[in-house]
């Protein structure tokens, strides 16, 4: 079974030794999944390798780039540094869960399209997840300086920052006007 190989890759353990495996439930984009995995699996790997949700990206794998950002109980977090087991019982939203079920894009997705707020796109899912949590956070001001400060943990190697900022401000106006 292909999954067994994946388990071994993700957990870096002998696939025949199942002694430390644990079963957890993760609620991702409204769906609850039961997973059996090694305790050292981080949420990012569980999402990508086990649930095939590959929108969240592995950039630095050390909390330095923000490409893995997902939203957990309304707050953006670096899924590369979060043990999957510790996310049990919480509402996890990934980029795959951002648009409406009928395909209508979230205002931040629409704004990224309209403002051409990406080049290679590798950081984009993380940028948008961080942006959505900031837009929902009443404690973060929405002036350019505050948005830049709040999003400074999301690195864009292409340097699309100007358009990202434009997109976030535009989405803010859309949401406020709605």
């Amino acid at each position: 079974m292909a999954d067994a190989t994946l388990d071994a890759t993700v957990g870096h353990v002998d696939p025949d030794d199942t002694s430390s495996l644990q079963t957890i439930e993760l609620t991702v984009n409204g769906q609850t999944h039961t997973l059996t995995l090694e305790p050292n699996v981080v949420l990012l790997d569980a999402l990508r390798e086990r649930l095939n949700l590959t929108g969240a990206k592995k950039g630095c794998d050390h909390g330095q780039c923000g490409a893995c950002t997902v939203v957990i109980d309304g707050r953006a977090m670096n899924s590369c540094l979060l043990l999957a087991a510790l996310a049990e019982g919480q509402d996890i939203t990934t980029i795959e869960g951002l648009a409406d079920e009928d395909g209508t894009l979230h205002p931040i997705q629409q704004a990224f399209l309209e403002h051409d707020a990406y080049q290679c796109g590798y950081c984009t899912a993380g940028q948008m997840m961080m942006a959505t949590s900031i837009l929902n956070d009443k404690d973060i001001a929405k002036d350019p300086a505050s948005i830049k400060e709040a999003m400074s943990g999301n690195i864009c190697r292409c340097g699309a920052y100007k358009n990202i900022l434009d997109a976030v401000q535009s989405a803010h106006r859309t949401i406020e006007g709605a």
Binding site: N78, M151, N154
Partner: peptide
Amino acid sequence: ASTGLRNM
């Protein structure tokens, strides 16, 4: 740190 790390 960053917003994401401070949340954690």
